[in-house]
Amino acid sequence: MKTERSTQVFNVAGYLILTLISLLCLLPFLLIISGSFTAETEILADGFKLIPNDFTLLAYKAVFSEPGQILKAYQVTILITLCGTLVGLFLTSMTGYVLSRKDFLYRNQLSFFIYFTTLFSGGLIPWYILIVRYLDLKDSYLSLVLPALVGAWNIILMKNFIKSIPESIVESAKIDGAGDFTIYRKLILPLSTPGLATIGLFMALAYWNDWFSANLFITSGDKYPLQFLLYKILASAAVLKTNIAGNLSADMKPPAETLKMAAAVVVTGPIIFLYPFVQRFFVKGLTIGAIKG
């Protein structure tokens, strides 16, 4: 079949714009990678460069000064990301489904109940007291998973995705005698894969990038997730550069600038492979027929 002229115009425009945007997004990352291999003094003197004059692995040596600890941190992060995302996705999609049902009388009130939490919060201190004193989760893996299990944003997005599934499907399933949970499990879940993939990706990213809860709740070194471990290394490097370095002198002064970049590479590396995996679920035209047949 011959491509229409309008389609050709469209495609050319699409390639051009997307290429331009990709370059804008890629370039800084290349700078980070090259920066992480550059000598500290070179960065300080000349700023960022695409190709370093003085190639060095010092920043990575500082990051991996204790390889056992980094590996353990990867493990913790992967574990938390997996558990949090799976359980969270289950709850989020179930809630999203219920809220999308037109015959669920209190859907608007309950949507508001959930959305309201994005507007108001009691602040850090009561939240911290709740988790540490009342739930007694200090230094427990649960403190990294539980507080971020479901979020209002994701629920509402999920509800929106599910809303695009034609109501007639639910109706006919009900006539066939299927219960609400069965409809959710057998029909809604398979039909909303792009939505699930999107929300799942968001959750995984949030867990992967979270260093703040570990900073507040985790006290044992062997429970540190990756992001927090790296933040800690960066923070110590920054402290060593300051006036109190007279008090806190270490034999090896880590290169503070390039360390930031090496840390970014170490963190981003593995999670970037998650994305192509998620892309597999972005297949157009998962139609009703495919499910029924």
Binding site: L110, L130, V150
Partner: peptide, 21 residues
């Protein structure tokens, strides 16, 4: 029942700490 866990979650982790306001 399906929505209950989420509602409990928000009551505990979001609404309870709101006393801090």
């Amino acid at each position: 029942l399906m929505i209950a866990p989420t509602l409990i979650f928000f009551s505990v982790f979001a609404y309870l700490p709101m006393v801090g306001i």
